[in-house]
Design a protein around this nucleic acid. Structure first.
Lengths: 343, 343
DNA sequence: AAATAGCAGATTAACGATAATATATACATA
DNA sequence: TATGTATATATTATCGTTAATCTGCTATTT
């Protein structure tokens, strides 16, 4: 084995054709006679040839690679979607490059920079905060992209997300119908569109049941502070007689239920807990929480679809896909009982 | 804004230097006068220049990118490590490319192929089965690589893993010391070195307590069959009077505890459960299971270290790092009580 | 038989960067 | 003054591939 990689030139000399003919044979150009094409392909295989994508991309301008820019690899919600995207993209002949901001959206521009530098054909972007600048950076560089999961204020662009408003409405309607009158809304990071929509839908639903915004206490905190906030649930709840707890995402619900259980409360006897994502549907070992399911796999596949479409047709008008949601009852909600400490 | 990307040539014409000088300035070559370098850098920034990595890699032969080949993105154990690796690599000036086999190791060769095609400088490889062929493929192509988490029979190469034998020993010693006499060992996929080592260590420990292999029932199953297998725990356990359950990884333990609880058993009163990974240490919302902690973050950082070292010094002798393990008691083990159904 | 079209394949010129080499100037040395 | 040395920059070749263009040759048309 030589120390350097086999190139098309090597194949060309080995089989007596020109480099160009080898290139076309290996790309499956049908304008070559079948016999020639097959012979070259066979020799290439025998020589262990591996195409140099750098050269190919440099010359052709197409990398057949898509970057996915994501916030956090610890988050199962994201990981599940990444897995699906990887599959969809591979099926379409694309590679996926994962770029992770490690919860620090300031790195977002750097990630986009890397993606452009690597000549990706497009970007699947999961916005975190409600931040325009990264969008503008992609636009400035003529990079096709699709926003996933959330929307950004005043940005009209390709976007795939779930019907968060409807999700919030379903949660509110569910709890109100059970008879709950006061609520704790444990939200995630401020200013994300998901949070605004879910809360909005929730309020709309309870208003329809004769309740008002005054009956909801919204607690929000940065990811890192979540645990701390939750430690105070007991304090927040008891004097105000909340019985319904709405969590912005399942992980918050897990922690909330844990905190409640640790304090001797029983779910759903003392508190009803409802959440979003329904992670346990996809990942069997996770705790089961009544949750609004938002078809993550569709966000992934449709996102890929939209992006590939955008790459092929840069001048199409922006397309927005809003996916339906439904509620999965896993038994963590019930009619309100009396709120009290056990034992 | 022009429709095409800004190149070094554009910068060169804009500032009156040659392309070569621009290239050196942007790479921070100190043999250029400070004034020139800074001026060029500033102009480049103002023009929104983004280096074309394809061209750079093609010419220089270095991509400053490392591929991580992993099995499954749904697995938190992997995701946690990916996150760390991403961090370590970025700090060292490298990018990370994640390639996922989707639990199908047959795709492994294809992943390596992709990595080589993308001119990565090295590969961090998580072996799944005990399979030599992929290793040989990397060697044949002179690709620096480090095996992570597991070792492969008869393969001597850079390798970072935890002391699985000691881990198994700790688990066995812990349960035997509590007084357990019969065990169920719920293993993951067959033939992985982790499983062999953990089981080996476990057996060694219980032998030291006067017990034997006959006291252990090993149940193994492919990932996909895990759920099914676990549904039979009740059947397997009761007639044979097992009280100690060792799970190959935390997710199996979660499912096992769930299955036991569903059947009316109480952990640890009826069964002691011990496991490996201690995921709940890193991911707070996960169920707490007494578990052998294997310093995942060190596997990640040391793996990166070894690989970068190997890239820099291809002729060093192979290096193996075995990381220490310790037990975290989360209260799912206790002295054996009577095994019986509740209610 | 001349003109045309189609085919198989070769030749040449990029893509955008970096490495190797060359040049021109300024200054120091003998 | 001639020579050497360092500095600052330019010129040229090259990485491996693909795109555009070109050359023969054979077969078909008129």
């Amino acid at each position: 084995m030589p120390a350097t990689r086999v190139t098309m030139k090597d194949i060309a000399t080995a089989c007596g054709y020109s480099v160009n003919t080898v290139s076309r044979a290996l790309r499956g150009d049908t304008r070559l006679p079948d016999s020639t094409r097959k012979r070259i392909q066979q020799i290439a295989r025998k020589m262990g040839y591996i195409r140099n994508s750098m050269a190919s991309t440099l010359r052709s301008g197409k990398s057949h690679t898509v970057a996915v820019i994501v916030n956090d690899l610890h988050n199962l919600h994201f990981c599940n979607m990444l897995s699906r995207m990887d599959q969809s993209l591979r099926e379409a002949g694309y590679s996926m490059m994962i770029l992770c901001m490690q919860l620090n959206e300031a790195l977002g521009e750097q990630m986009i920079h890397t993606a452009i530098s690597q000549s990706v054909d497009g970007i699947l972007y999961f916005p975190y905060h409600n931040n325009r600048s990264h969008i503008e950076y992609m636009e400035k560089n003529h990079m096709p992209f699709v926003l996933l999961d959330r929307w950004i204020q005043n940005v009209v662009t390709d976007n795939v997300r779930c019907d968060d408003h409807m999700g919030g409405w379903l949660a509110g309607d569910h709890l109100a119908q059970l008879g709950h009158k006061r609520f704790l809304f444990l939200s995630g990071v401020n200013q994300s569109s998901s949070q605004i929509d879910r809360l909005g839908g929730f309020l709309e639903a309870i208003r329809a049941h004769g309740l008002s915004e005054a009956d909801v206490r919204v607690v929000s905190g940065e990811e890192v502070e979540r645990a701390l906030e939750l430690m105070e649930i007991g304090k927040l709840l008891y004097p105000l007689d909340y019985t319904g707890i709405v969590c912005f995402r399942d992980e918050i619900a897990y922690s909330a239920i844990q905190a409640l259980t640790d304090r001797g409360y029983v779910v759903p006897r003392d508190f009803s807990v409802i959440s979003f994502d329904h992670l346990c549907g996809e990942t069997p070992y996770l705790p089961r929480v009544t949750s609004i399911y938002s078809a993550n796999e569709d966000v992934a596949t449709q996102g890929v679809q939209l992006l590939l479409n955008r790459i092929a047709h840069p001048d199409l008008p922006p397309q927005v896909v809003i996916l339906p949601v439904r509620i999965f009852d896993e038994g963590t909600t019930a009619q309100p009982g009396q709120v009290r400490k056990k034992g």
